[in-house]
Design a protein around this nucleic acid. Structure first.
Length: 648
RNA sequence: GCUGCGGUAGCUCAGUGGUAGAGCGCGUCAUUGGUAAUGACGAGGUCGGGAGUUCAAUUCUCCCUCGCAGCACCA
């Protein structure tokens, strides 16, 4: 038999017969390693202890101490163990797929009756029994036909469909956890007892479509979370609790920012505090856009269907549009209109007024454009996904040659703004050509390359989302993350020549003839609603001072300080600071607690001493010490703090 | 939109086939206090909406609506 050489991480190599398994290699090293081993890494690939190695390779034997492979295996084995537990408890349940995801795994089942939260505890108990049996995990490679026949006989049509969807005639890998079998690429642990029985938890039950297709069966998905030890699980549960406290829906109520109600689902009633954040942000963006060479416009809310027919929205976006009909009863003629779901067609109307020259390009047109979209009810989420919102929208009319530069300029514009708003972690995703699209591959090549180059030129990496672009062009998404790790697209930039063409936008080129411009749809914040939601969660309600709706509360300790407190508030207000007076007949402890919970960044306490010395006792949110400062000093300090970053 | 769960006082929640309860908040009074809850008293709810079953429905059933989690969607 041929010999192969396996090189270990320490650089030493050993010779083995070809086809040796990591299990044998581990046993060769030591019996304790053979026991502890969970998998191997062979030339960078995650390798099951049972898989043969046929050629020279770099090898590392993994144990539970190797966090990355350990988590992967624990979660993956738990997916199988959970499916086995479910089928042992309810033999009529059909199994489908169960992948590892962030923090855990899920498995999708088909069962007539619904799983209940009580069932989760039952399943967990059964899973622990399976783990305690320490049954071996075994794998075999099967011919396709055999696998299909096996699952047909077993009455598992989902598995048959999965196999049929695997391309080619490649043999299929089967895994057994004890007697329970599943189709699986692997790798897996050596036996079920290697799964820590106290480091996992079943989290929730939800519906999920088979193969992600809403036309197909709705399955029941059970989510689980798992770590390599009990502490890991505990920490994770703690993180979830902490994240829940940052939820903008909770903070929005506590900080009295906004509310929503049944009569206007998916639309925001902004309260004074929330609207302060909104207008402060809008003022900031307006100054930023002016400085960035944009002209600001404003366009109608209610627009006749003719324009939507021309733009193509009537055909392809109608189910998401609020249709407004005006009938003869109270108007001279019957018209059908729609609330604008986006601003681009209106911006083209502005562009189309008068003849444009290539000398005017790129033309950067911005609007704080209020849009209404009839979003599916299940998609609504606080102020992050709503039916009525205002975009910090903009369209850059330009030539093809200008796309890359304009994109780079935009990315730089956006990144400065995100930094000033306190975001350090955000990502760019480049969505490329979808299957259904218009335009030639040459044009798509150019446009995708232009966007990618612009990112690199601006100094940013990006992830590619294959096939996720719009039918008319590729796009960049600028993604921020909320408190519990959900991603939200905020900024965007999309390349489009379709709408300009459909709506007859032209410019006169250097050659004297008319050309269709490209249009870059772009938004920095995305929508004020979503962005403010993210902003609240990112800062856990403790917004940067200049954005804080309530910046300073001047709180008296004794009523003898009332007059002076008035004076302090007046001075702060005159300096442009949002200051409030709290001379209620309450103890200072009470006032401090209340305003701290309300996330007021600065509390100025005033007692007899401060009145006497014309000072204030300064307490900042998140600190429990105080400092005495003179009135003049605090006013000028607060004035600077309240100045937006672009005006410093 | 789909699956599951939920809607009781301003908020957080308990509860019941015989028209409801707590804590916080709110109001009144007393208290003038040094940095995360002073005390006493009081007001406040057609139990999300509609229909049905019942002598009787907040409670059981159905429909609608809104919300939550996930899926699908997201120009």
């Amino acid at each position: 038999m041929a010999q192969i050489s396996l090189t270990f991480p320490d650089g030493n190599a050993r010779q083995y017969d070809a086809g040796v398994t990591p299990a044998a290699v581990a046993a060769d090293i030591s019996s304790s390693l053979a026991k502890k081993a969970i998998s191997a890494t062979v030339d960078g690939a995650h390798w099951d202890m049972q898989w043969p190695i046929d050629a020279d390779a770099q090898i590392a034997i993994n144990t539970m101490k190797d966090e990355e492979p350990a988590l992967e295996l624990v979660r993956h084995d738990l997916a199988h163990i959970m499916a086995r537990a479910v089928q042992e408890l309810w033999p009529d349940v059909q199994v489908t797929i169960g992948p590892v995801i962030k923090d855990g795994w899920y498995y999708d089942f088909d069962r007539k009756e619904s799983f209940t939260p009580e069932d989760l505890a039952t399943i967990e108990k059964k899973m622990k029994e399976i783990i305690n049996k320490r049954e071996p995990v075994r794998t075999e490679i099967w011919e396709r036909e055999k696998a299909i026949q096996f699952y047909k006989d077993k009455g598992e049509p989902y598995k048959v469909e999965l196999i049929e969807a695997i391309p080619g005639d490649e043999p299929l890998r089967m895994y057994w956890h004890g007697d329970w079998q599943d189709l699986c690429r692997g790798p897996h642990l050596q036996h079920t007892g290697q799964v820590p029985a106290d480091a996992f938890k079943l989290m929730s039950i939800a519906g999920a479509y088979w193969r992600g297709d809403s036309d197909r069966a709705m399955l029941q998905r059970i989510y689980g979370t798992a770590f390599t030890n009990k502490e890991g699980l505990k920490e994770h549960m703690h993180r979830l609790e902490e994240a829940a406290k940052r939820d903008h829906r909770k903070l929005g109520r506590e900080m009295d920012l906004y509310h929503m109600q049944e009569e206007a689902p998916g639309q925001v009633f902004w309260h004074p505090n929330g609207w302060t954040i909104y207008t402060e942000l809008q003022d900031y963006m307006r100054r930023r856009q002016r400085a960035g060479g944009y002209v600001e416009v404003n366009t109608p809310q209610v627009v006749n269907r003719k324009l939507w027919e021309a733009s193509g929205h009537w055909e392809s976006y109608q189910e998401n549009m609020f249709i407004v009909e005006v009938d003869e009863e109270h108007a001279r003629e019957k018209t059908i209109n729609a609330l604008k779901p986006m601003n681009c067609p209106c911006h083209v109307q502005v562009f189309n007024q008068g003849l444009k020259s290539y000398r005017e390009l790129p033309l950067r047109m911005a609007e704080f454009g209020s849009c209404n979209r009839y979003e599916p009810s299940g998609a609504l989420h606080g102020i992050m996904r709503v039916r009525g919102f205002t975009q910090d929208d903009g369209h850059i009319f330009c030539t093809e040659d200008q796309i890359e530069d304009e994109t780079k300029i935009f990315i730089e514009f956006l990144s400065e703004i995100y930094a000033e708003l306190g975001f350090t972690n955000w990502a760019i995703k480049l969505s490329t050509r979808p299957e259904k699209r218009i335009g030639s591959d040459e044009v798509w090549d150019k446009l995708e390359t232009a966007l990618g180059n612009a990112c690199k030129a601006a100094g940013y990496d990006y992830d590619i989302q294959e096939g996720e672009g719009a039918f008319y062009g590729p796009k960049l998404e600028f993604v921020l993350t909320d408190a519990i790790g959900r991603d939200w697209q905020c900024g965007t930039l999309q390349v489009d020549s379709n709408i300009p063409e459909r709506l007859d936008a032209t410019y006169v080129g250097q050659d004297g003839s008319k050309h269709t411009p490209f249009m870059l749809h772009r938004a920095t914040l995305g929508s004020f609603e979503r962005f403010i939601g993210i902003l609240i969660e990112e800062h856990a309600g403790k917004l940067p001072f200049w954005l804080a709706p309530r910046q300073v509360v001047v709180a008296t300790i004794v009523s003898d300080g009332d007059d002076y407190a008035h004076e302090v508030v007046t001075a702060l207000k005159a300096a442009g600071v949002r200051a409030e007076l709290d001379i209620r007949n309450e103890k200072i402890n009470y006032k401090v607690r209340e305003h701290s919970l309300g996330k007021v960044p600065v509390i100025l306490a005033i007692g007899a001493r401060e009145v006497e010395e014309r000072t204030v006792s300064v307490r900042r949110l998140g600190e429990n010490r105080t400092a005495v400062t003179s009135l003049d000093e605090i006013v000028s300090e607060m004035k600077i703090a309240a100045t937006p970053p672009d005006q410093l």
